[in-house]
Design a protein around this nucleic acid. Structure first.
Lengths: 106, 106
DNA sequence: CTAACGTTTGACGATATTGCCAAATATAAA
DNA sequence: TTTATATTTGGCAATATCGTCAAACGTTAG
């Protein structure tokens, strides 16, 4: 694998890694229907404010979300809509796996 | 977040996590053009046989690849083609990020 | 049967990720 | 100005992931 090629794959992996966490994935899906402020996420998931903030920061850093401060609150929104289709593919994999599980049982 | 819901997100995250590694990502893309045996990957990437084998096993476990033993060799192939489109989305994010970098410089 | 090849597995240290707490910051309300 | 609210940041321990080595396994060749 050439050096510059591996550099590209590292970058890609970083973006995918940002999505590879249950809470972050959930938040991304929540944003499908529009922006949310940090406190809205905190209310819905039983986790620390700082934890949620850091998760959102990872998604922002990866270029998946963008944020905007309005008053005391910070709102996050999807920057790249295709991420949702992306998640659709993952669901296809899950369905596939589930069906195989069923076959093993029978 | 409800318990069963969070269970689903955990599963999804596991599948995405399988893709969230430079070498694994590269291997998945290699498989776009057809199956490969483990030794072919080892030859192309400067990494231990066992490392490659473990990476492939993670992708198989996630339901992204399937394997078939023929003689002394084990061949791996893509089980869910949509993963490639998935990667296309990641590339879109990367392009986006790169353009913003350019804007910051100018 | 023995040897060689291709692959997987187990163990282990190095490194990265996660989540909470406490402290810092910024904005708005009193 | 003081206080309360919304969010971010730094530190730190718990946990997970990564890559290598050595050993084990299955298959084919000799």
């Amino acid at each position: 694998m050439k050096k510059n090629l591996s550099q590209t794959y590292k970058q890609k992996a970083t973006i995918i890694k940002a999505l590879a966490h249950p809470t972050r994935l959930w938040m991304v899906e929540q944003l499908e229907t529009g922006e949310r402020c940090v406190c809205e996420f905190v209310g819905a998931v039983d986790a620390d404010f700082s934890t949620i903030s850091k998760h959102l920061s990872i998604l922002k850093q990866a270029g998946i979300l963008e944020d905007e401060k309005r008053g005391k609150q910070v709102f996050y929104r999807l920057k790249v809509p295709c991420v949702l289709k992306f998640i659709g593919c993952i669901e296809a994999v899950m369905k596939n796996n589930a069906e195989e599980q069923v076959q093993l049982v029978n």
